[in-house]
Nucleic acid binder design. Structure first.
Length: 223
DNA sequence: TTGACGATTAGCT
DNA sequence: GCTAATCGTCAAC
């Protein structure tokens, strides 16, 4: 069994932590997912981050200790999970965007009936659903030995190899613009802070953030 | 108290 | 390709 990640691992700058989370496994509620795609959010300086506007009741967890689990609710129906990184108070976090179910496949299939295996954790909300992560898990310290959510280093030699490589646990790491991030001024998407493993089928499809339409002025209904 | 918006997804055309 | 679903959060009154 691979060792769990440590506080020191998460306490580093988020841009160092994020790519190293690829290939790590996350286990919760009977399902284990191997991370294939993540995104970095750098709290204080990042217009795309929830923490950009400072500490609020919702972002309290982001300002806490590294290794904390930040789960937020969005679009009225979806939960997304982040791991808090950097020194305490930095409010940086890594969004778990996608992964491959490597254990507990039956549990995952039951939880997400009608979904093909590849899509079980392909996308941040699907990943959270497959791991049964909701607001109830928000604020958990994943480094606590009693924490039901466990993150472990990549298992050497068990990389699926579906990318064609007899690969290292992590495979080849690619970077690119973050998905669906608009933010003030539309600048946030410019940061190439999305990391994924090349050739992985479970990496979510890229979509650019939807630019905010200009506010209608005066008239009730135009065109 | 109100209103706009969202780190998405599924189900359409 | 487009859009409805659906509600917590936060800024502005």
């Amino acid at each position: 069994m691979q060792p769990r990640l440590t506080r020191a691992f998460f306490a580093r700058p988020v841009l160092e932590v994020a790519p190293e989370l690829l290939g790590c496994t996350v286990s919760h509620a009977g399902v284990t997912v191997r991370l294939t795609e993540v995104e970095a959010y750098d709290g204080s300086n990042d217009p795309g981050s929830h923490a950009f506007r400072g500490r609020t009741p919702r972002t309290r967890v982001m300002f806490g200790e590294p290794g904390g689990l930040y789960v937020y609710f969005t679009y009225g129906m979806h939960w997304c999970a982040n791991l808090v990184c950097g020194p305490t108070g930095a409010a940086s976090a890594v969004l778990l965007r996608a992964g491959e179910v490597v254990a507990g496949l039956e549990v995952a299939r039951r939880r997400r009936a009608g979904v093909i295996d590849r899509d079980l954790a392909r996308g941040p909300a699907r990943l959270a659903m497959t791991l049964a992560l909701t607001g109830d898990q928000n604020g958990m310290d994943t480094l606590d030995t009693d924490c039901p959510l466990v993150i472990r280093l990549p298992v050497a030699g068990t990389w699926s190899g579906r990318a064609g490589g007899a690969g290292s646990p992590g495979g080849t790491v690619r970077t690119g613009p973050r998905v669906g991030v608009s933010g003030p001024g539309g600048q946030a998407a410019a940061y190439p802070w999305r990391f994924w493993l090349e050739g992985e089928a479970t990496v979510s499809p890229y979509r650019a953030g939807t630019p905010r339409p200009p506010k209608p002025v005066g008239r009730s209904r135009e065109q």
